[in-house]
Design a protein around this nucleic acid. Structure first.
Lengths: 224, 224
DNA sequence: AAAAGCTTTTAACATGTTTTTAGAATTCGT
DNA sequence: ACGAATTCTAAAAACATGTTAAAAGCTTTT
């Protein structure tokens, strides 16, 4: 589950945002000021921090700069909460390393969709990196496989199979696991079904990417 | 001309507000309760709804949530009318997706300036979102699609479908998601309903914009 | 209140693609 | 070289989508 840390001095805001984010399935952490927020961020390593710009003692900009300067928190996504016409803070915020900002009054639905967008952005990048060899890219969202810039059309099962194998290059996936994941538990298909799919995948993306481990299963080779 | 829907059970309020808004050049629609209001909103697609929080049967919060949950009304701006010390309603109101609120007793001049502010804000936002590809523009506010300067009339469902797909070009939307978003959760329609809508969309905007991913769903292609 | 016009949904059928199967050929490890 | 596992091939079966026309729902007009 994705976790979100809210840093805001106003209890009302913390409550409303917390309520809405929990409802959407996020794990919620809260802090009432910058110092506390940084401590929690270090300890809990949340996926994203919602950070109020205007706070007494230490403002959001400062907090963000501190987060960015520590290696244990530098990677955490930060989204600023700003009052409507604090235009300057948007600029200063991005400057300080924010990923996005949302203006008050905050509409929960807007906020949630922005949060999802930020998190998706980062997970996309990872997907691309992890399932990417120099020549091959796999984009689950767009359902597209690219080889040396040329996009290759793959039908659903072949795509799912490739995406699974490529999700952990070098790891051997055994036939039962592949069947469960790509076909679904309980679905019974003949012995040769996987083979045929692998064959056609090799035909389309090139045979060098998928290696057979006889008696066990298949693995994706990340060609450097 | 910008249109405003007033939903309030008290005839006095409807009359006073209606009179003032007409004088300011708005087109005014009225409804005496939530159900009627939602119907009118769907049919007339007003630019903004003034929504009384305290009403018998269905209160404003509920009405607003319903409006937000339907794709055909989700984009309409909502401004709550609240009694002076209903503080909680401000919180619950934003929670339900309101854009602003005005406390009674309402001073017409204040209300008009608030309304102008909301509409101005929204038209700014929409401009950014509306031009999605060079050839095709989609304006949620006006419910208009333009292709190379020529405006194309699309019925509601087709428009919503296009707007959804175009909201993230290249991304594949699966059939379940499309059904949930455009038709609504729990609404059951036949298997071929989406296809037929896609077909007619392609007929009107050109077949090259919407691509089928067999077994998965559809995606919008952003032609450069 | 009926008629005319749209929009939306349904249903039946056509089409083309994907998935599965099965047998023969081949490969691989021991 | 032997046997088990995998690949290859082609055809059958299953499936998803496209296409049409008509029916069912709405709104607006008369």
């Amino acid at each position: 589950m994705e976790s979100i840390l809210i840093i805001d001095d106003e209890a009302d805001i913390r409550d409303i945002l917390g309520y809405n984010l929990k409802k959407e399935g996020f794990q919620v952490l809260t802090a009432t000021n910058g110092i506390e927020g940084i401590k929690i961020a270090e300890r809990e390593n949340p996926d994203l921090i919602l950070l109020d710009v205007m706070m007494p003692d230490m403002d959001g900009i400062e907090v963000c700069q501190l987060l960015r300067s520590k290696s244990s928190t530098a990677h955490i996504k930060v989204c600023f909460l700003t009052a409507r016409n604090e235009d300057y803070s948007q600029i200063a915020g991005f400057d300080a390393g924010a990923d996005d900002y949302v203006s008050k009054p905050i509409k929960p639905k807007v906020l949630v969709s922005r949060i999802r967008a930020i998190l998706r952005r980062s997970s996309d990048e990872q997907t691309v990196n992890s399932s990417l060899s120099d020549a091959l890219t796999i984009d689950r969202d767009k359902y597209v496989v690219t080889k040396k810039g040329e996009s290759i059309h793959l039908p659903k099962k072949e795509f799912e199979l490739l995406a699974l194998l490529a999700s952990e290059p070098e790891k051997v996936f055994d036939r039962d696991f592949i069947l469960e994941t790509v076909w679904g538990t309980g679905i019974i298909v003949g012995d040769r079904t996987i083979d045929v799919h692998v064959r056609r995948l090799r035909e389309k993306i090139g045979p060098e990417y998928i290696k057979t481990i006889k008696g066990v299963g298949y693995k994706f080779i990340d060609l450097q």
